[in-house]
Design a protein around this nucleic acid. Structure first.
Lengths: 174, 174
DNA sequence: TGTTAGTTATCATGACATGCAAATTAGTGC
DNA sequence: GCACTAATTTGCATGTCATGATAACTAACA
């Protein structure tokens, strides 16, 4: 399977300005907190967690509540402005890339990269054996470019060991 | 993409007897709790959670601890006797089918079916753009045979609404 | 400027998974 | 059969992630 990475922002999330417009139309208020999140999410391909967004946001706006982060992310997801991605390795990820794409998870550094499956145009809705397939989620596990070269096994996401770590081994493809 | 379902038990988990042998060889004790789990898992294609196994086990062995279920499942997974499958819709699933296969999740009834990808032999380890892909996890979402016909939208897994439910919509494919 | 939606703070809840210590027991040697 | 000991089990506590609920405060915008 061919994988082309990078330059895969097919359908970027709306700009902060556009989101502001959408919110106004829906009678939702344009609070500084929401605008800050719009900015943090726009053009963000780091697949942040709610917690990481909270940390970043707190620097620019001390006192902002984690509860508000969850609240706003939930609203945006409900509105179809961002995707919720569960890669099975901890917290939910928020992905402003609304284009059809898949994910690559580096088992060494924990980084998540967008992946565009160019040579699998049929990896879409289809059905067979009575199964009506509406969505297909693909997660690639392996080692990313940097880790492959540098062999830096260090800064793994500081998640608790045990089950969590083993999740990486899910559904082997040996 | 062609999907053929059913009859995909390529590499069934070892039988309870064989597992007992393996445990003995590893100096692990053959407790009634473990043997019960061996039996419950053998030939089980329902992709149970630890909780559901606990419920079933409790009927045959009242007093068995949920902790023991997790413990034993973890050991079996470590030994490569079953797979941990995270379908991103709640608890971890345990799959005694050790063959290479993928999963179909019915968004209506919540059922999980094994899926054999016959026409995608290249959906294996590969690399491109510096990404060394070691494992590929594929999850199909849609409606299963029964739900497609009967339109019975009822017995959805009784998970809490909200974020959890939305997870089903993760990583859209259109 | 007033209305009211939104934010914050706080606490509670819930699902899921794991760590830990004490109690129990399987399998051994006798 | 019996006692011994290390492996298991059990029950409880802990931890993470996400959400609900409430009250008091703040500020968007008509």
């Amino acid at each position: 399977m061919q994988i082309s990475a990078g330059l895969v922002i097919l359908f970027e999330m709306r700009s902060p300005t556009e989101l502001a417009q959408v919110f106004r139309e829906k009678q939702l208020r344009l609070t500084p907190q929401r605008q800050l999140l719009f900015n943090l999410l726009h053009d963000n391909n780091s697949h942040p967690t709610a917690e990481s967004l909270f940390e970043t946001a707190s620097k620019q706006m001390p006192g902002i509540s984690l509860r508000t982060i969850y609240q706003t992310l939930g609203e945006l997801a409900d509105m179809g402005e961002l995707q919720l991605v569960d890669l099975g390795n901890g917290a939910m990820r928020f992905d402003p890339n609304m284009g059809e794409h898949q994910h690559f998870v580096c088992g060494s550094c924990g980084a998540i990269h967008d992946v565009d499956i160019t040579s699998a145009p049929k990896l879409r809705a289809g059905s067979a054996e009575g199964f009506a397939v509406e969505e297909v989620g693909v997660v690639f596990h392996g080692r990313c470019n940097r880790c492959n070269q540098g062999e830096q096994k260090s800064h793994h996401s500081k998640r608790s060991p045990g089950f969590q770590a083993k999740k990486i081994k899910q559904v082997k493809t040996n």
